[in-house]
Simulated assay, not measured.
Amino acid sequence: MNPEITAARAYPITDYLAAKGIQPERTTAGKAFFYSPFRAERTPSFCVYLNSNRYQDFGTTEKSSDIISLVMKLEGCSFKEAVSRLLAAQGQFTPIREQFTPADPTQSISLKKVKALENRALLQYMESRGINPQLVR
């Protein structure tokens, strides 16, 4: 497994929530109960399992999940961005490295010239959608 992902998953959910100003309402052996960060409620239904660093929102039908999923859901970001944010919060500013194969330097890149859009039906459609025809061309 990717070491950055492993490090991000190790960030304690309780620390992440505390940084967002969310404190537990009660703590029992191995569990911390919070009011859900996703909705208003009178009884805490958001449980963090302290030993496994996983959470479960009992106000939904979702199964338990990890901190990366929580960050994605709370902050509306991608998996990669959630991992980056968690690493930054831990002081590990290492960006996630993309898995790719380098381009072959012996191959050349050819660029093609693009013609202006002239199809009347497409231009009319774009205009009907409120898109400036000059911009489309």
Rank of each mutant, 00 (worst) to 15 (best):
L111D: 10
V71K: 03
G76T: 05
L70P: 02
R97K: 14
A7W: 04
S110A: 08
E41K: 05
E118P: 01
L70A: 04
K112Y: 14
V114D: 05
N2K: 11
S45N: 13
V83G: 00
F79Y: 15
P105E: 08
A88P: 00
Y55F: 15
I96Y: 11
K113D: 12
D104R: 07
D104G: 02
L122S: 00
Y49D: 14
A89M: 12
P3F: 01
S128C: 02
P12V: 07
L111T: 10
N119V: 06
P133T: 02
S108W: 01
L135H: 05
Y125H: 07
Q124F: 04
S108M: 08
E4C: 13
S52Q: 12
M1F: 08
E62S: 12
T6K: 15
R39W: 08
L123E: 01
I5P: 01
S36I: 04
T27V: 15
A8M: 10
K112H: 10
T106E: 14
F34A: 03
S84A: 15
G59R: 07
K63V: 10
Y125S: 06
Y55P: 00
M72C: 14
S64M: 08
L74I: 12
A10H: 10
Q23A: 14
K112N: 12
K80F: 01
A18P: 00
E98M: 04
E62P: 01
F79M: 08
Q99W: 10
K80Q: 14
R137V: 02
F34M: 04
S52V: 13
L122Q: 10
V48P: 02
F79H: 14
S128E: 05
T27E: 14
N132K: 13
V114H: 09
P95H: 11
P95M: 11
R85Y: 02
P44L: 09
D57K: 15
M1Q: 14
G21S: 12
Q99A: 10
I131Y: 08
A18H: 12
K63H: 06
Y55H: 15
A89Q: 10
I68D: 09
D57V: 12
P37T: 07
